[in-house]
């Protein structure tokens, strides 16, 4: 359980902090526009086809968990959204805006809407934790006092305020990821992309990272893509939700009779195509040998 301080990041009042209902999407028409949309996207490196006509969308406040074997194009999806790679064919839309033909300066504006958490944190080695988290704000030339307040707020969110003056090489793997999350969240982006953020972490730290993602999804209404190949992450993200109790503390509860999570879906990439798309229950019930092998860690060649 996290402290009340962490709840201050929330943008909506505590009494409204419940996972989105489908009727909300009808009441608020702008919410019907997907935050991220892939339309028939193809990408190949020489003869190696990475994505072979991928189409999917991520609604506002929704988390799409992307599963697949290593080298299967999971991270490529994220790089395409950020415009770090361009697709060979197809369209990618962010907030309804087609970014496929954008050049680098145009992509810079789009990237301001997106937070990205890299696999190893990708912190700037030569900058302190403070400078890393403040990077986006310092680049915009914002006032020092405001920057410090925002950095401290973000570091409190990831429970690392004490590490503000440390250098990245003084941090453990888990702390680096959490600083990476804090850096990605500065400026309150409404889209956050996670590229295997728990890879190589011990289970409690991995759980903490998932809790942060759940908190952003349910309390901040952030749309996200969570690339992973760890089934534990899938279990946490698709079966638990964050809410705020009467004491103002953020708590995590399991979905059940009272509430069923509809804001998390799973995509499984297989040979460049979407091999599965649906809820976690459907994934677990699947009789497809590939999916069963993936879930039980016995993926064939």
């Amino acid at each position: 359980m996290l402290s009340a301080n962490d709840a201050e990041i929330q943008a909506v009042p505590a009494d409204k902090l419940q996972p989105m209902d489908i009727s909300d999407a009808i009441d608020q028409p702008h919410r019907s526009q997907p935050a991220i949309e892939f339309r028939d996207v193809y990408l190949a490196f020489d003869d190696n086809v990475i994505l072979d006509g991928i189409s999917f969308s991520v609604r506002r406040g929704e988390t799409k968990i992307v599963l697949g074997r290593s080298g299967g194009g999971k991270s490529t999806l994220i790089r395409l959204i950020l415009g770090l790679l361009k697709p060979d064919a197809g369209q990618i839309l962010i907030d309804g805006e087609e970014i496929t033909g954008y050049d680098e300066p145009e992509m810079m504006d789009v990237r301001h809407k997106i937070g990205m958490v890299f696999q190893e944190g990708a912190l700037f080695d030569s900058l302190s934790v403070y400078q890393n988290v403040a990077y986006r704000l310092l680049e915009r030339g914002e006032d020092d006092e405001e920057v410090e307040a925002e950095v401290r707020r973000m570091l409190r969110f990831v429970d690392l305020e004490d590490a503000i003056d440390k250098m990245p090489n003084e941090l453990s793997g888990g702390m680096r990821r959490r600083v990476g999350i804090a850096r990605a969240l500065v400026g309150d982006p409404q889209i956050v992309l996670y590229d295997e953020p728990t890879a190589g972490l011990d289970p409690p730290t991995a759980r903490t990272i998932c809790e942060l993602a759940i908190k952003l999804r349910d309390l901040q209404d952030v749309s996200s893509i969570f690339v992973t190949h760890e089934m534990n992450n899938v279990r946490y993200l698709s079966s638990e939700y964050a809410t705020v109790n009467d004491a103002g503390e953020v708590i995590y509860e399991k979905e059940g009779e009272r509430l069923c999570l509809i804001n998390t879906e799973i995509i499984m990439l297989r040979d460049g195509k979407i091999g599965f798309q649906g809820k976690d229950e459907e994934l677990m019930r699947s009789k497809d040998p590939y999916i069963m092998g993936f879930i039980h860690g016995k993926l064939g060649p």
């Binding site: 950020l82 990237r111 301001h112 990205m116 990708a122 700037f124 680049e139 850096r183």
Partner: peptide
């Protein structure tokens, strides 16, 4: 080169810096 292999260049671009 070490910024490239540790994804720091990608992170810089993702944070909106050329």
């Amino acid at each position: 080169g070490s910024m490239v292999v540790s994804q720091q260049i990608d992170a810089m671009r993702a944070l909106g810096t050329d």
